[in-house]
């Protein structure tokens, strides 16, 4: 079996990303409802207050759906459905939690920047990297991870 057989196909990764892009805001809405962070007038006192609270909701939603699941299972919901997973490129084991939370976290919301020229260049470059031989996006390089088929999951 060669290296490219282990790596997840671009199509599976794309579909998994789409699923996560839909699910993460939905979880964000649930977090917003449960915590009430954007429910009261106090949340709208200043633009900074709104920003901090919205960011908090986003971080919680990411940790619940992506950060923790990626660390524990190597899979988000999207990746589990598409039967792919991430591993540490060097060790082939679970990715480091701090890297998932501090580095990888920012790239999922960045995808929404695709509608905002010139900022759209950031997610385009990130995603375009999967067309390289290693199929590793910028966030994979930053976290030292690779996306592989589930059968090869540790």
């Amino acid at each position: 079996m060669n290296y490219s057989d282990i790596l997840a196909s671009r199509f599976r990764r794309f579909v998994a990303t789409i699923i996560d892009l839909v699910l993460t805001p939905l979880v964000g809405v649930i977090v917003m409802l449960v915590t009430g962070l954007l429910e009261s007038a106090e949340a709208y006192t200043t633009m900074a207050t709104i920003g901090v609270r919205a960011l908090t909701i986003g971080v919680i939603a990411y940790i619940v759906l992506n950060g923790w699941l990626l660390h524990a299972r190597g899979q988000t919901v999207g990746k589990a459905i598409m039967k792919i997973a991430i591993v540490d490129t060097i060790t082939g084991k679970k990715a480091s939690l701090w890297k998932l939370l501090l580095l990888r976290m920012w790239f999922l919301p960045l995808i929404f920047l695709v509608a905002l020229v010139p900022w759209s260049i950031i997610p385009i470059i990130d995603q375009a990297m999967i067309f390289t031989a290693s199929r590793r996006s910028v966030h994979d390089w930053l976290c030292g991870t690779s996306v592989i088929n589930q059968v090869a999951k540790p």
Binding site: V29, L33, G36, L38, E39, A41
Partner: peptide, 8 residues
């Protein structure tokens, strides 16, 4: 905003 608890 339907998620806003109106009004205080």
């Amino acid at each position: 905003n339907p998620f806003y608890g109106c009004c205080t």
